[in-house]
Nucleic acid binder design. Structure first.
Lengths: 240, 240
DNA sequence: CAATCAAATAATTTCGATATTTAATTGACA
DNA sequence: TGTCAATTAAATATCGAAATTATTTGATTG
């Protein structure tokens, strides 16, 4: 079955990080976060014992979270050999961006064709919120602002949210996660600045004007540019 | 030391789909199979205790398998409320088919553009194998032939296998699973026959002739037709 | 009679420990 | 000194039971 409403609300960024109902879900969220921020680097071995200590829970919740993440593609699993953070490489990033463009092109076109007023309003709202938070949480040096990250994700998913397929939306969200991880890995090395807000505004305006071709061009260019910057700033990813 | 039985069966080529390395993976495969065949119907509650009895393993492998399946979309999970087989509905099937057409259209076009000789050969081989097994394992009444199901799946994935994106390929495989489940659900009610082999042959020929537009038309029509048959044969899916 | 609440029951989730498998180390032998 | 086998150590996977949370049952009250 396609992702349920709870998942969709979470994707839309409209829910605050509410306390998860089970330890397994809580560990899943935290582990996912730690992988996306690069706090757990690509290829890192994920030993049960170490994670037990890190998250202060027992065996079972850890393994349940790891099993879910492995189906998400953020963690790799090999029978009898345990879990690792998914590897990262230039080739992988290129494949990822290509796939993302294919899927989001469809999703955006459909969204623009089918989106109703509430979709349009959600989009405007997402952009507004994104425009009000700083890219970096510090003034002098760059440091990741979790609010910006969350709202940025929400904006991009708002664009696609009316595509009419929960499957496609979920896949886009998954690829979004993967791309976010690469962005974070690049930031560690020093992330070159650019005016992303203008790009987002242009997309939002093209989408609300129902100009599908323009919106798609802008979105594709946005992704290609980001990928280019990441590829420039990183010669090669560490191989564990 | 003389080779053990396992080695001998392997050499003789008599080994069935080799047993998974861990109990969790084995249960995952069996559960997945039971859901795809409809042996575990949509909406069915998946109680730990019942599954423990069914598959004769402990608690942990069951839960690990369920967690993986929930990320695959074959099972739904709600914190503190356990697991269920994913629901099925006409609306869901329509959304599924639509998404499948979107994604496979891209995958097939890319496959045809990029596929090398070994892709072409794999495709011809897949078709040949599919053509040599019967649709039904019984002559007089219809009964699912697991070999045909497996080879049918393999053929469709062979078509897309050169698309150049493991992500896209994985998504197509996932949607394939979902569609297979609907097909099985319809078969229970009595599945109308048609000459699927010719359709598959036409696709194979168009693909090897590198005629992307024709191949895509054939594939889309193939899916639409299947969906139509399923929707006709089922008034509504049971709601648990 | 319907609604509410509390107790009892059932199911899910989690823990700690054990069994199995893999990886690392040691030591014998060439 | 290098290789291989045997041994030890470490890690993974699994089990069974305890703790937590949901659901049902049944009594009580408005």
């Amino acid at each position: 079955m396609p992702p349920n409403d709870e998942v969709l609300t979470r994707i839309a960024g409209l829910a605050v990080p509410e306390p998860a109902g089970t330890l397994a879900s809580s560990v899943y969220d935290r582990l996912r976060g730690d992988i996306l921020t690069g706090s757990l680097p690509p290829g890192e071995k994920l030993r049960t014992e170490a994670l037990r200590a890190r998250y202060e829970v027992g065996n079972s919740p850890i393994r349940e979270a790891l099993n879910r993440l492995s189906a998400d593609g953020l963690v790799t699993r090999e029978d009898q050999k345990g879990f690792r953070v998914a590897a990262a490489s230039r080739a992988d990033l290129e494949e990822l961006v290509k796939t993302r463009c294919w899927l989001e092109q469809i999703a955006l076109r459909e969204s623009i064709a089918n989106g109703d007023d509430s979709w349009e309003e959600g989009l405007v709202l997402s952009f507004h919120r994104l425009s009000r938070v700083r890219r970096s949480s510090s003034e002098d040096h760059y440091s990741v602002n979790p609010d910006w990250e969350r709202l940025h994700r929400a904006f991009h998913l708002a664009l696609l949210s009316a595509c009419g397929s929960r499957w496609l939306l979920q896949y886009c969200a998954q690829l979004n996660d993967q791309a976010d991880r690469y962005r974070q890995l690049a930031i560690v090395v020093s992330y070159p600045r650019r005016n992303e807000l203008d790009e987002h505004e242009a997309m939002m305006k093209a989408a609300t004007a129902r100009d599908a071709d323009s919106a798609i061009s802008l979105l594709m260019a946005h992704y290609e540019r980001t990928a280019g910057i990441i590829l420039e700033s990183i010669s090669e990813f560490a191989a564990n």
